[in-house]
Design a protein around this nucleic acid. Structure first.
Lengths: 334, 334
DNA sequence: CCTCTCAATGAAATCGATATCATTGCTTTC
DNA sequence: GAAAGCAATGATATCGATTTCATTGAGAGG
């Protein structure tokens, strides 16, 4: 690969002029510009991003840290972010933690050492990492996408999951369901608690008493959790007539189990999920869900990041609150 | 962030010694080692990957270039690669081209400027880029994952798509289907042609004549293509009794359309796909498909890359041929 | 006791860019 | 016509690491 020195020599100018040509073209005379341009083309030169970053202490890379790529929601988030990031001329790297704190710490180290321009962190729920995150936020621009309402020390986009699950639950109630079950995942995390509260409080408000036998918590945010939970409900002497699922993946699994068990959807049992992942439309019946404005969330996250990169705002913490929107399909209304 | 200089000062040694401590610890005396280790811990120092890469001209980053993240197959590929890459201590960045040649060129530029350690390219079918790829392969380690049997100038993993579709078609024939349709995507690409040949030649070998009315090519590798094609077939005076789909995504869409149209699966119409994506198990009925050894492909791709990185092998082109394995589900056999 | 290794360390060049400061001609202005 | 301003360019320090080469001191061998 040709370097700036080679270009300078070929164009018979100093490296400084070539650098100027690259970064502030009108500071160099038209004729010189011509010569440099030609040399660059001839040598097929393109500046080393490494060297530029080294000198300017900035890169054009954004990191997205999520738990696992098997969770389809993250794929949508990633896709949305990819677009947003691209629009700013940055590129995006993906890191997964698989819910391990040590993996997260390793990733944080990686990201700082590589001078990423910023980091976006999607719905991590490792409990003991708030401190690490705060330290990270001190080092470089960081935006959290979170369901934790108490997050106040780091820029974040707060998705009201409690509200989302509440809306889903209320919907099942509104279509006349009386025994509504709940399937969650990732117990002991803030997000899990929030969602469960959304479910339980809505039932209570409607005069129902949440039945512990109608609540199942799996480990993974994965359709297998939905299948497992639903299979358990079907074995009950008194089956539920509705199932609220913490995520769409889980809802898909629930529906699959109902189909396998030849249970009528939505007559016998209706199902609702949460997230609004795009592949939902490839299933039949389609899952009623609470759709998140993922693209908007991604855009905003990127925007917040860029503000920090440019040091625009004062040191205040930024926060965006978003809620999902109920989208009814034939898993709850025929 | 602390630099190597700070550490040197704090430990009262030269930067050279700190560097030695980092890269060849036994070249420094135990006592000195102690002091340096302590200083590093105290200053929370970790070497700038940028500076290291700049000096050594190597990074620990691998790039994966694919067409689009909405194609679920790529997600599996990405996941498999993520694991392989991780095992070597590298990290992975994802780039998408959305089937645009210019986007691919931009990505290639990006990847070379950023000194990626290697690039893996998954099933691109932009026609006019072979030259660009060859130039890229000259600059840095590159492995293609491809369905193009004629690829011979760049290290590659060749997936025999023709065989895969042939196996799927033969399977539908073997269960007694007589009018087998085909839905493909991305026309005018090598991969598309290969697959179609797999379909047509198998029919012919069995004494059938491929009926042009039973062949549909959509634009995107997406379930909507499957829905569209299938809807067309259902409108035919003589419907097919089996559908072979070029990819699982398409197969899923086909099944969805059949379900919506209340067509019996597999009795009236059986469906088969190709790829073996992992989310297949979340659908009901499940799609009969030809499963690819994705993890093995990813491992091998990474292995090939590492060989090039270390300059181990002579300049010979490497090639691995893989075939898919038929996996029968209830979309073809009740 | 003097040279010779060899282990341990330091000084300085280097990677490929950017940024600061200095220099060189010209034009402008009084 | 001399001082000043300005446009265009060059020389060089710098980012944070690695690497080569030089230096030092201690123990081995004669």
């Amino acid at each position: 690969m040709a370097t700036i020195k080679d270009v300078a020599k070929a164009a018979n100018v100093s490296v400084a002029s070539v650098s100027r040509y690259l970064n502030a073209p009108d500071m160099v005379k038209a004729e010189t510009r011509q010569r440099i341009a030609e040399a660059i083309k001839r040598l097929d030169y393109s500046p080393s991003a490494l060297a530029v970053s080294m000198r300017t202490r900035q890169t054009q890379n954004i990191a997205l840290i999520i738990q696992s790529i098997t969770n389809m929601y993250y794929i949508d988030l990633y896709g949305a972010l990819l677009e947003a990031v691209d629009r700013y001329g940055y590129s995006l790297s993906l890191f997964t933690t698989e819910r391990s704190e040590s993996a997260l710490r390793k990733t944080i180290d990686n990201v700082t050492r590589n001078n990423y321009a910023g980091v976006i962190l999607g719905f991590l729920d490792e409990p003991g990492v708030q401190r690490d995150l705060e330290r990270l936020a001190q080092t470089l621009p960081l935006v959290l996408i979170t369901c934790d309402p108490s997050q106040a020390t780091i820029d974040n986009i707060f998705l009201d999951a409690r509200d989302g699950i509440s809306v889903a639950t209320a919907h099942l109630l509104s279509i006349g369901k009386k025994r509504i079950a709940y399937i969650g995942a990732a117990p002991n995390s803030v997000i899990s608690t929030e969602k469960y509260i959304g479910y339980a409080s809505t039932l209570e408000k409607a005069g129902h008493v949440p039945d512990p036998k109608l609540v199942f918590h799996g480990l993974r945010q994965h359709f297998s959790t939905g299948m497992e939970g639903t299979a358990g409900f079907l074995a009950l002497p008194r089956r539920p007539d509705g199932i609220v699922c913490a995520t769409d993946d889980i809802g898909i699994g629930s529906i699959k189990q109902l189909l396998v068990g030849k249970v009528g959807i939505p007559d016998e049992i209706a199902v609702a999920g949460f997230n609004g992942i795009s592949v939902l439309h490839s299933y039949e019946p389609e899952l009623t869900t609470v759709v998140q404005p993922v693209q908007m969330m991604a855009d905003t996250a990127m925007h917040m990041l860029m503000d920090r990169v440019k040091g625009v705002p004062p040191r205040a913490i930024r926060r965006l609150v978003v809620k999902g929107k109920l989208t009814v399909s034939n898993s709850s209304v025929a």
